[in-house]
Amino acid sequence: MPKHKIDPNNWIDLYSDYLFNYTITRVNDRDLAKDLIQETFFAGLKSMKNFKGEASERTWLISILKRKIIDYYRKINSNKAKAEVRIKYNSDTESEGDWLEERVADPFDKTAEDTLENEELGEAIYSCLEKLPEKHAAVFKMKTIEGMDTETICNELNITASNLWVIIHRARTAMATCMEKNWF
C-alpha cells in the first residue's frame, strides 16, 4: 500500500475548474479545452501507478495537461509549435521597415504582456479559491464566475438569501486577503 492515495473520483470536483481555466487561456476554445482535460484525466488514470507523490496531485495533472496542449499544437502543425526566433536586421532587400523606429516595439501595444499577466492572474485566483472552505468556494464560484442569480443559487443549494450573502462576504474577505498576499 503506497503512502499517498489518489482518488480519481474526486478529480473533477477538485481540479476541473483550475485545469479548464489553465487550458482555455492557452487554446482559446471551449470544446477543445474540454477534450484536452478529458484526455488529461484519462492519461492520469492510466499512469496513476507511476505517480510518486513527490508533487501535489494538481501539479502532476498540470504537467500532463501541458504535454497534451503541446501535442495538440504539434498535431495541427501550427506556428506556435514551430516557434523559433529569427532575427534579421536589414538582411532583406526590401527597404520597408528599415528605419529603426519601425522596428521598435510599439509601447502602446501591450496586448501580449497583458494576456500573459491575465493568465497568471486567473491561476492566482483559482489557487486562492482552493484555500476556501468547499461550500464557500462553490457559492462564490457560482455567483461571481458563472454569474448566476441569487435566487437560482438559493434554490439549488437550499439556503436563504441572507445566508448566501454571509457566505459571499466571508469568501470575499478571504479571497481579498489571499490575493493581497499573493498578487497585489
Binding site: 479548464f20 481555466n21 478529458q38 493568465e119 485566483i125 461571481t144 464566475i145 458563472e146
Partner: peptide, 23 residues
C-alpha cells in the same frame, strides 16, 4: 481583478458528462 482575468469555469452539465465518462 476577477473581471480582468476573465476566469471561466465549466458548466455544471459539462462537468457531469465528464464525470460520467471518467467514472
Amino acid at each position: 481583478s476577477i473581471n480582468k482575468a476573465q476566469v471561466t469555469c465549466m458548466q455544471k452539465q459539462e462537468k457531469e458528462t465528464l464525470k460520467e465518462t471518467l467514472s
